[in-house]
């Protein structure tokens, strides 16, 4: 397995937690990881982006045009970072509607697939906006091309959650089930 993953959204959406969730799971599976996180001033609400390489080189950042996947917690951040994806790359985005129409033709041309889930809405239904990130993790994990088994993700969530493991596990499962339904259709 060799994965280059971009995780993006706004400060406060739990990007660092989501990144650690994938990194920890990959390491548990015996893979090497190299991650670049955003800390400091930009965490006060600005754009936040993580780069994650599983079994890749040791440069912290992913070269634009080579990422396999992107998980975006916000649609505008997905669009802003689209060029990071390689041809036939894949976007998992938390959104009610599709991405801006301007990019549609290019996504078709580059064979980049956009997988959409209204994760913020699902999170509120479960009782907390703060688990949107974990719902998106489960959503991505449900896709056959995304090579990180949900079982291991579940174990990681149990391990790294502080006092809200139950809600987090529910979020992961909700995203996973939603993904299975969408991807099998």
């Amino acid at each position: 397995m060799d994965i280059k993953l971009i995780i993006t959204g706004n400060g406060g959406q739990g990007i660092v937690f989501l990144t650690r969730l994938f990194a920890q799971t990959a390491v548990t599976l015996g893979h090497s990881v190299m991650v670049s996180e955003t800390h400091g001033m930009s965490q006060r609400g600005g754009s936040v982006i993580s780069h994650l390489k599983i079994n890749g080189d040791e440069a912290p950042l992913i070269l634009s045009g080579t990422a396999d996947f992107m998980i975006a917690l916000e649609a505008n951040e997905a669009v802003r970072n689209l060029a990071l994806l390689r041809r036939a790359g894949m976007v998992f985005v938390n959104a009610d509607d599709g991405l801006r129409s301007e990019v549609g033709h290019h996504l078709d041309r580059l064979n980049i697939k956009v997988m959409r889930l209204p994760a913020s809405r699902l999170a509120l239904e479960l009782g907390s906006a703060s688990i949107t990130n974990i719902i998106m993790a489960g959503f991505a994990a449900a896709h056959p091309a995304f090579d990180i088994p949900i079982k291991k993700m579940t174990a990681t969530v149990e391990k790294i959650s502080k006092n809200n493991a139950e809600l987090n596990l529910k979020a992961l499962e909700t995203g996973y089930q939603a993904g299975r339904k969408i991807f099998s259709a």
């Binding site: 006060r44 754009s47 634009s64 045009g65 802003r80 290019h106």
Partner: peptide, 24 residues
């Protein structure tokens, strides 16, 4: 370069909202 120049140029020109850091 692996980046698609057309897509990159298009995104650069889009009026995407810029969210500057703000007090919490």
């Amino acid at each position: 370069p692996p980046e698609d120049p057309e897509l990159a140029a298009l995104i650069k020109g889009l009026p995407l909202p810029v969210k500057p850091p703000r007090l919490c």
